[in-house]
């Protein structure tokens, strides 16, 4: 059993709520948050910015040979998702038929189990994306 606790715990707000940052100088929105702006290198404390969780698939692939800790859900689809506020983010797609994913597909964030550290360890939860829920008008 691994006990990687603090490493994941400190990212709770990012993993659960997509909290990133907006640069006070150039206005670029960033996920994940950084100490130094990735566009203008400004290093003043950047205010939090919560992303909407809506975006579209920029690229995707299906992982068949899953690494340790991920075999349970293999084969699964990972994607680069273009968030509507700008940044690209790497995440799994869930609640999806792997063969029906396409570039440009609108997706929304959900919180799911990313991995469990064995039967005895901590469960790591975080963002995944799914096709936007069809809602009757």
């Amino acid at each position: 059993m691994t006990t990687e606790i603090a490493r994941h715990w400190r990212l709770n707000s990012q993993r659960y709520q997509l909290v990133g940052e907006v640069c006070p100088k150039c206005g670029v929105k960033m996920f994940p948050p950084r100490d130094v702006c990735m566009e203008c290198a400004d290093d003043t404390r950047q205010p939090d910015f919560q992303f909407s969780g809506r975006g579209e698939v920029y690229s995707f692939t299906t992982v068949h040979n899953a690494p340790e800790g991920y075999q349970e859900s293999a084969p699964y689809t990972v994607a680069l998702v273009k968030l509507e506020e700008g940044p690209l983010i790497t995440a799994q797609l869930t609640d999806v038929v792997n063969s029906e994913v396409e570039i440009g597909m609108p997706v929304e964030m959900v919180t799911r189990k990313l991995r469990a550290q064995g039967e005895e360890g901590v469960i790591i939860y975080g963002y995944k994306f799914r096709p936007r829920l069809a809602v009757a008008g």
């Binding site: 349970e72 799911r112 469960i123």
Partner: peptide, 13 residues
């Protein structure tokens, strides 16, 4: 539920 769902994820949504 799918393999990545449990009572927490269901309750949260």
């Amino acid at each position: 539920g799918g393999p990545d769902e449990d009572t927490m994820t269901i309750g949260l949504e």
